[in-house]
């Protein structure tokens, strides 16, 4: 029972970060019907941003986080301009291929700059852990969880309660009508990709700090997991993606705790197959493409 509780807690901690990556990915898809294959590279850019910050600027957590997020957002805006805006609204495979190309270029650019081996990120959060009855949690886990929760609540507030968030929902449903009512759809595109990159960047910083390393090809597995989250949740409700991200984290932690950690990723994709067989539109419904 203690192992179970501990693994559920660990799962929620890591799952919150999966959810943040998946949310940005899913947001871009539902607003612009673009499967942004470069999204994992925003995550990678955030981790390298954290590396550069700790190495040259500051080891203050807030500073590292802000630096990583800004680097990711800058990469996001370049990707939006090069591979999303010119092909938005076309058949879904076209932006898929365009963003894949830019994503591969970004991976190899990072490899050129930082080398093909992982670089070490020094610990910016002092090691400490807290015990609550049968379970314990590290300070690092709490920091990454807090970052994820703040980002998720922030996105929710933005989408539901702000003028541009409302415009974003309007564009998601009817881009042409939104434009005819005064919404600059290109601006919404930039804003949406920028926000998704900020979130992925923050997740990259979290994972970079948690595993104290950054690597040019680290995005791939997290990108695949966020793709799984979006497909399992369906892309109609951002809340659904959050729930599925958390569930995925818990599931993986339970598999690691009770079976073996080598099966961890197999389980994620196995679940995807099972869910799609029974609910092809995901658990919470999807827009058609």
């Amino acid at each position: 029972m203690d192992l179970f509780l501990q693994q559920v807690l660990n799962g929620v901690m890591i799952g919150s970060t999966y959810a943040v990556v998946a949310l940005g990915f899913s947001l871009v898809f539902s607003v612009m019907r673009v499967v942004n294959m470069a999204h994992p590279e925003f995550f990678m850019a955030g981790a390298f941003g954290a590396y550069v910050m700790t190495r040259y600027v500051t080891t203050n957590v807030a500073g590292v986080l802000a630096g990583g997020m800004l680097v990711a957002a800058a990469v996001g805006l370049v990707v939006e301009r090069l591979a999303i805006r010119p092909v938005r609204g076309r058949y879904v495979m076209i932006p898929f291929i365009a963003t894949s190309g830019v994503g591969i270029a970004l991976q190899h650019l990072a490899e050129r700059v930082f080398g093909s081996d992982p670089v070490a990120i020094p610990a910016v959060v002092p090691a400490a852990s807290y015990t609550f009855g049968p379970v314990s949690v590290t300070r690092m886990q709490l920091v990454t969880f807090a970052i994820a929760v703040v980002l998720m609540l922030g996105l929710r507030y933005y989408v539901r309660n702000t003028k541009w968030g409302r415009a974003t929902r309007a564009v998601a449903e009817r881009p042409e009508v939104a434009a005819a009512f005064g919404v600059d759809v290109d601006f919404v595109s930039r804003l949406t990709v920028g926000i998704s990159a900020l979130m992925a960047g923050a997740a990259g910083v979290s994972i970079g700090m948690l595993y104290t390393s950054a690597w040019a090809f680290m995005g791939l597995i997290y990108g695949l997991k966020s793709f799984v989250c979006m497909l399992v949740a369906g892309n109609r409700h951002v809340e659904g993606v959050m729930v599925v991200g958390l569930m995925l984290g818990v599931l993986e932690a339970l598999v690691s705790g009770y079976l073996t950690s080598t099966l961890r990723d197999a389980v994620a994709f196995g679940v995807l197959v099972v869910v799609l067989v029974f609910k092809p539109n995901g658990l919470f419904g999807s827009y058609s493409v």
Binding site: K163, R166, A167, R169, A170, E173, R174, V177, A178, F181, G182, V183
Partner: peptide, 19 residues
Amino acid sequence: QLFSTLTVHENLEMGAFAR
């Protein structure tokens, strides 16, 4: 072509988006 996932009030807010 209403914004069907928005409320009546939010649709009106979208109508006044530019203003």
